[in-house]
Simulated scan of single mutants.
Amino acid sequence: MISVARNGAHRFSKEVVEAIIILEGLGVVGDAHAGITVKHRSRVKADPTQPNLRQVHLIHAELFDEVAAKGFSVAPADLGENITTQGIDLLALPRGTVLAVGESVRLEVTGLRNPCAQIEAFQPGLLSAVLDKAADGTLIRKSGIMSIVLAGGMVQAGDAIRVELPAPPFLPLERV
């Protein structure tokens, strides 16, 4: 993992910090998206009682290189992620994968982040750069994955992440 971030307000980007504390069933301490029920403003408006499947947001740093080749400048936490990874194909993980982070944190992958207009407001044209089309015409969302917290603890840049796949059949990630 190359960085960790949080933000107590509902701002698009987060602030890179030295370490974050993650609480079981809630998310990142001091982050606006932590909680048992959904905190994403548009989802709260639709149904504030739905479970929070977006407690911790992870993005792969390789995305930054990909969009840089298209003329964009994106750094860790700019797109609102709590954890920036490197060397893990997050988008290829099946739903239910557990990510063992650092000494004690365990995150269960719930689905894909659905990139929204805030990405376009951050840098015009970036929204289309984090979307793609598969050969069959389906939309590929590249702006990271979401997870819930099974076990908490402290994590910091440099901590290892171990991938624990669920039992087959593997379910593809869908937007959450």
Rank of each mutant, 00 (worst) to 15 (best):
G102F: 09
I21T: 15
V101K: 10
I2P: 00
P48F: 10
V38Y: 06
S143K: 14
I119W: 11
E18L: 06
G71F: 01
P168G: 05
H10K: 15
V56T: 02
R41V: 10
N7V: 03
G102Q: 09
V101Y: 12
L126E: 09
G25M: 06
V56W: 05
E66C: 02
G35H: 07
A117M: 14
R95G: 00
R41S: 12
I140Q: 13
G27L: 09
T49C: 00
L107R: 04
A46W: 11
V56L: 04
A157H: 08
P124Y: 03
P169G: 04
K45E: 14
V109S: 04
G30H: 07
R6G: 01
L131P: 02
P168D: 01
K39T: 11
H33F: 11
L63H: 12
F122T: 01
T84C: 14
F122R: 11
G80H: 10
A9G: 01
L93M: 08
R113S: 11
M1P: 03
E18M: 04
I148D: 01
D65I: 00
P166C: 03
N52S: 02
P166A: 00
A134F: 07
L63V: 08
I20R: 03
D159Q: 10
Q55Y: 12
V4K: 00
L90Y: 06
I36E: 15
V98M: 04
L171E: 14
F170I: 00
I83D: 04
L112Q: 05
G8T: 05
R162A: 15
P169T: 04
I161Y: 11
R41K: 14
I140S: 08
R43N: 12
V56Q: 02
P124W: 08
G71K: 08
G87A: 09
E174F: 11
P169H: 03
R175T: 14
S13Y: 08
D47P: 05
V74K: 01
R43L: 15
L93E: 06
D31E: 04
V38N: 04
M146R: 10
A34L: 03
A19L: 08
A157C: 07
V176G: 11
V109H: 09
G87E: 08
I88S: 03
P76C: 12
V44R: 13
V67C: 07
G87I: 05
L165T: 00
G71P: 07
E103G: 05
P169Y: 05
